[in-house]
Amino acid sequence: MTAQIHPNAIVADGAVLGDGVVVGPFCTVGPNVRLGAGTRLVSHIVVDGHTELGEENTVYPFAMLGGPPQHTAYKGEPTKLVIGDRNTIREHATMNIGTVNGGGLTSVGSDGFYMIESHVGHDCRVGDHVILTKQATLGGHCQIGDFVIVGGLAAVHQYTRVGRHAMIGGLAAVVKDVIPYGSVWGNHAHLEGLNLVGLKRRGFSRETINTMRAAYRMLFADEGTFQERLDDTVETYASSDEVREIIDFIRADGSRPLCLPEREV
């Protein structure tokens, strides 16, 4: 199968289009772009910069992929945006290339859903099966784990980490790291508990969820110091892969503040 390019589209010399790629009317594809097999640009889309899309992605009108980073230090360096396979990228969504200081790469995984006007900033690392709902925003350098959902109009501050399977509620302002499986909401966002709805939808067993809930209660109890509770949780639930993932996430970067439950006054 050869690529199908609408006569009103502009595909620059040097662009590489895989088998079955569809470039719809009024799209612009830059000279350093690679589109994987079966990817479809519906219409009125700009893909520019050193940008790679994997296979079977669908991109809707007025999305901008591979635009320069929104960073005052960027001087036109040939940094990259790499997007995986089977993503749905809806109208007006934007994803920027990286910066030299940030490693030169913005990466987006596979099987994601990026809704209207969502934004992935420069140097982000976004996992698989991620959903950014309407106008959700990721600042530069964010790390977003697999199966994360970011609610509508929520904003994740630059350099923030969000662990796998976490849920960020609509309108949340997230300025602190979110543990794997956590559910946060608010301005500024605080930890509401575990993302129980997401865990059930993804087939986690009742036993696993109950273990995680017990570990959560121990970790975020009022008694003792946080370090003491962390050590106790490790000792008590060492056999749980999910609890271990939460602990490893917390210990991985002690320089970042952590979203915690809101304390009653």
Rank of each mutant, 00 (worst) to 15 (best):
H157P: 06
V150I: 15
A173H: 11
V175R: 11
A173G: 11
G145F: 06
V162L: 13
V175H: 15
A154G: 14
V162M: 10
I149D: 12
D146W: 07
H165T: 08
A154T: 13
A173I: 08
I168M: 07
V150Y: 00
M167L: 10
G145Q: 11
F147H: 15
R164K: 12
Y159H: 13
A173L: 13
R161M: 06
G170R: 00
G151W: 00
Q158T: 12
R164N: 09
R161C: 05
V162R: 04
L171M: 12
I149T: 14
V162C: 10
M167V: 11
L153S: 10
R161L: 04
G163V: 08
R161K: 15
I168A: 01
M167T: 08
A155V: 15
M167F: 11
M167Y: 05
H157V: 11
I149A: 14
V156Y: 13
I149N: 15
V174P: 03
G163D: 05
L153M: 14
V175G: 10
G169M: 06
V174H: 05
A166K: 10
V156A: 09
M167W: 02
V162N: 10
I168R: 03
V175K: 04
L171Y: 05
V175C: 10
L153I: 04
L171T: 08
G151R: 01
G169E: 07
M167I: 09
I149R: 05
R161A: 08
G163S: 09
I168F: 10
V150L: 08
A173P: 02
A173M: 12
V175L: 09
G151F: 00
V156E: 01
V148R: 14
L171N: 08
T160K: 04
T160F: 06
T160I: 06
L171W: 01
A172C: 06
H157R: 11
G151L: 07
H157D: 09
V156H: 10
H165Q: 09
D146Q: 07
I168H: 06
R161E: 02
Q158W: 05
A172E: 01
F147D: 02
G151P: 01
V148P: 12
L171S: 07
A172Q: 07
R161Q: 07
G152T: 03
G169W: 02
G152D: 00
I149P: 02
G170W: 00
A155Y: 13
G145D: 09
A173Q: 12
M167P: 03
I168G: 05
A155G: 15
V174R: 04
Q158N: 03
Q158V: 12
V175A: 13
A155M: 14
G145E: 08
H165V: 06
V174A: 11
Y159V: 13
V148L: 15
A172Y: 07
V156F: 14
V162A: 13
I168Q: 01
I149V: 14
M167C: 03
H165F: 14
G145W: 03
G151E: 01
Q158S: 10
A155E: 15
R164E: 11
L153P: 00
V150A: 00
V150F: 00
L171I: 03
M167D: 02
Q158D: 07
A154Q: 06
